[in-house]
Amino acid sequence: MSENVNVSLKLFIEYLQIEKNYSQYTIEHYQHDISEFFMFMSEQAIAHLTQVEYQDVRIFLTDLYDKKMSRKSVARKISSLRSFFKFLLREEKVGENPFALVSIPKAQKKLPEFFYEEEMKQLFDACDASTPLGQRNKGLLELLYATGIRVSECSQIRLKDLDMYLSTVLVRGKGSKERYVPFGSFAQDALEKYINHGRKELLANGNVQENLFLNARGGPLTARGIRTILDKIIEKSSLTGRIHPHMLRHTFATHLMANGADMRTVQELLGHAFLSSTQVYTHVTNEYLKKTYMAHHPRA
């Protein structure tokens, strides 16, 4: 395959980092999807990106479906490659976008997964607040549940972004959009304990860091590191199954709406650009209320 293929990918990654300001986690997804298409090009003896045609794209999609790939995964790959070729078209590296006419398969409508209040208590109880790492984990879990912020946003929080007097945190969301999100007394207590004790001990293992959450070596805790911590917390709890990072975000929104918060407020707190992204929680809340009713009403 032509060396220009890898050069084009490198330019696209720089575009995502500098112009789009995407998180490293998102960029890795793009890189994986595009590299997979490069492998397909090699198998089909397509040497240059300018040689890719609509018919080649159809064969590529057929291969994905033959591998029993989910519609959600296929849709993501189409979106990644469409953006890639759109960038190449803008840079005049190709003459057309072969993915422009490909329709993205509609994903199966699936309600977001979330934790019930008693399940959240089990997660909090699984954090050993007597150790520096346990204090960090408790503060991390409390903040994620209290604010509904994304894991990628949480990993970027600096110590100076916290306002303990107003109980708010400055969050940098997608596209460098900033918003202030409040947090409650439970999160405040956990964060103060971590900052005054656990974080200072972790800092002794490394250099001075601006980041709020640190790893065991005293360095910044990455988004991937946060995901690993959440997995370990659920392993220590009595809950079964796996935790994915967005479950805490879904739980935050679901519990707010179940207790009477209006959709516009939840939209603002989550940092959603469109209200339609928040509306899914009305359906989740109905399920939540039904389960709560069935569990607690004496005549249910």
Rank of each mutant, 00 (worst) to 15 (best):
S238K: 12
M257W: 00
D262C: 02
T240Q: 12
N259A: 03
I233H: 03
R242T: 15
I195E: 06
M247N: 10
E235V: 01
G271M: 14
L230D: 07
I229A: 07
S277L: 13
L270T: 07
E235R: 02
R264M: 06
N207L: 04
H197M: 03
T265H: 03
L202N: 04
I229C: 06
T254L: 02
L270G: 09
N211Y: 13
F213K: 00
Y194A: 09
A204W: 00
R249P: 05
A223E: 15
S277Y: 13
L230W: 11
H255M: 03
L275E: 11
A253T: 13
L248N: 04
I195V: 15
F213Q: 00
L270C: 07
N211G: 08
E192V: 14
A223M: 07
I195K: 04
L214K: 02
N215P: 03
H272A: 03
H246N: 06
N196G: 08
T254S: 12
T222C: 05
E210K: 14
I226K: 00
M263P: 05
E268C: 00
I229T: 09
G218S: 00
K200R: 15
K232M: 09
A253P: 02
G206N: 05
K232Y: 06
E192Q: 11
L191C: 05
T265S: 14
E235I: 04
L202T: 07
F274Q: 15
E201K: 15
T222H: 05
M247S: 12
L270M: 13
Q209D: 02
A273V: 15
N211F: 13
N259F: 10
K236G: 07
A261Q: 03
I229E: 08
G206S: 11
T265N: 00
S237P: 03
G206I: 13
N259K: 15
T265M: 12
L248P: 11
G218D: 04
V266C: 07
G206W: 07
R264G: 03
G271Q: 11
L269I: 10
L221A: 06
G271S: 12
Y194Q: 01
R217K: 14
A223V: 12
G225T: 02
L239R: 06
L275T: 09
K200F: 02
L256R: 14
A258W: 01
I243P: 05
I229Y: 02
A223D: 15
F252H: 08
L203G: 01
